[in-house]
Design a protein around this nucleic acid. Structure first.
Lengths: 346, 346
DNA sequence: ACGCCGCGCGCATACGATTGCCTACAATCG
DNA sequence: CGATTGTAGGCAATCGTATGCGCGCGGCGT
């Protein structure tokens, strides 16, 4: 074996030279497509062989420069740390894959600067389409920037879309009403709401809550803030018997602080979440929450992004009753019970 | 406003035409670099102005074709859904940002095929470096494929690296010993281990556990499996008084099932986790766990990836004592207590 | 035997940005 | 006043791939 100094990158030209054909022939053979130009079987085989021997890899940059699709969907997400978005990304990636696309992810991390740099990366044909996950309203220049992008932009769970881009969304208001109705039907009369109305989707949930209640604590969307919110609520003169949290993460904080204060859930306090993150089913106690059809929504977003569909539907939520809600002062149904669904049990 | 049919993409040529200069001049002005060729102030201003007016965006593909760095770090992660990796990605992204790099993420989702497609995307100068998060041993062709990549490849939390690529890792064995020692010092004698030894890092933790115990339940890394593992352990003739989980996610499952069975933690059972995911501090009860210096490790990985450093250090873990561990049959210290650290309280 | 057709393939150019080299003009020097 | 230096900027090659167009050659028809 001879010493090859710096194998830098094997190009078509290299393959062509070795195979004793022109670079265009190599291109035609390797493109695989129905050859607009006929190639003899012997030549084709020779090219294919040398390409394999030389470990040729097409350069996507050069391909893209010629206008070829990158088969990449860019996803901009506000905060990867949010368990809900993690699941969403996973679903998005799975459905993209089924369509032969890959997902590249950049995240905004609640910082405008970052989001901007990201947008610059994703645009300009680095990827064929962009999916916005969650509410990215806070990024001032981002949306504006995105307007200049070539490919389609789809919003997924944007909350209250302003119609700037097609959106795949969920009926947040109805979801919150389902939670409130569930608590009402159990006999709760003093129901509080905890959430961060800065996020568009939470704002919609809050608005739906306001139709029947007005005991609101505003916090950032962390379990720690959820815990602190419980203290605020319980130190009120007439504390609630049930709390509807805007997200599961907040509900986790509520459950934690309730236990720390010696309060039993659901006997002394009922708690509902929103999102049905993976850990919700194994919370202590298992969390009653509102589930969204993540999988179907991700699929819709992918189809919209790659132009396979032009629909922008609003998906329905589903109440998942577990063990964190009960009649005031009563035990929940079975101690381990998922009244409505059971798929969570191992 | 005139009708602009298909603004396709504003190129330097367009800017040059409008600004009445040559395309090379536009390039020189916009590159910003110390001009090897002098440019008059008036020309520079004119170019800058028209570029802004026309909303010019450089095409990164064309840049990359000429060999320019993409300022992108590719991250390949096994499973975005894992809360631990979510935090890691966040840290990675932050540190990359500080160095003017962005992170693009692709995930393997435990599927070889997917990982391969991803590698193809990331290689070939689409990004300047690649960071592997977690154990990707299972992907057969991936590592091999990665060997052919131009840029540097760094493994982060790969567990037991095979030395193929430089690795930033954590002392998993010592971490597990810290947990076991903590439980021993509390007086526990029957300590069980729950984890998925298929993952390299968990395998190391298991090995360290084996130095002092042999009550092992093998499961996949989900909270549901953790819950099921508790049933297995408690139905044994001589059940453990403490369980060291290989990850926080498993510990969540253990806590859930313990509560569902009416078992009090930590009075009847002590539980330790591993990772210190964000929700660990607000588990019910707050989870005693092993923390890793995620931030420092992510920083090290970024520096290694972009060639700013050549060190491959092994980082130390830290025991974080919260409320899920106590002497057998005894209450934990303060009900809400973080004995060792307090930064978790809101 | 000559022209025509079609197969198989190479030439050349384009994509957008970078960069080495060269030109044109002005100012300054000898 | 001619030569030199410096300033300002254009020309064209280049990166790797795709593709329209055209060229040569062999076989077949008349």
């Amino acid at each position: 074996m001879t010493v090859t100094e710096r194998p830098r990158h094997v190009t078509m030209k290299d393959v062509a030279q070795v195979a004793r054909v022109s670079q265009s022939t190599v291109s035609r053979v390797l493109s695989g497509a129905p050859p607009a130009v006929p190639i003899s079987e012997s030549t084709r085989a020779r090219v294919l062989d040398t390409a394999a021997r030389l470990q040729y890899r097409p350069n996507p940059l050069a391909r893209g420069l010629r206008g070829a699709p990158t088969m990449l969907i860019g996803a901009i997400v506000r905060d990867v740390t949010d368990p809900f978005f993690a699941v969403a990304i996973d679903a998005l990636s799975r459905h993209a894959r089924r369509r032969d696309y890959s997902v590249v992810l950049g995240h905004a991390r609640e910082q405008a600067e970052e989001a901007l740099a990201l947008a610059a990366v994703l645009e300009a044909r680095q990827c064929d389409a962009i999916v916005l996950l969650g509410d990215v309203r806070e990024e001032p220049g981002l949306l504006e920037d995105l307007g200049a992008v070539d490919g389609p932009v789809v919003e997924l769970w944007r909350g209250a879309g302003d119609g700037r881009f097609p959106a795949i969304s969920v009926d947040n208001a109805d979801g919150m009403r389902q939670a409130i109705r569930h608590l009402s039907e159990l006999g709760h009369e003093r129901i509080a709401f905890v959430g961060d109305p800065e996020k568009a989707d939470v704002a919609v949930r809050l608005e739906a809550y306001r139709e029947s209640g007005d005991d609101v604590v505003t916090v950032r969307n962390t379990a720690q803030d959820g815990a602190a919110a419980l203290d605020v609520l319980l130190d009120r003169p007439n504390p609630p018997t049930a709390i509807a949290a805007a997200t599961d993460v907040l509900a986790f904080g509520l459950l934690h602080r309730a236990a720390a204060r010696g309060l039993r859930v659901p006997e002394d306090l009922s708690v509902t979440g929103f999102d049905d993150i993976p850990l919700a089913a194994t919370a202590v106690p298992a969390l009653t929450t509102i589930r969204m059809p993540i999988d179907a929504m991700a699929e819709a977003a992918v189809e919209r992004a790659i132009g396979a569909s032009t629909e922008t539907s609003v998906f329905a939520t589903e109440l998942v009753v577990r063990a964190s809600t009960a009649r005031p002062g009563e035990h929940s149904v079975p101690p381990e019970g998922d009244a409505a669904r059971r798929e969570d049990a191992p």
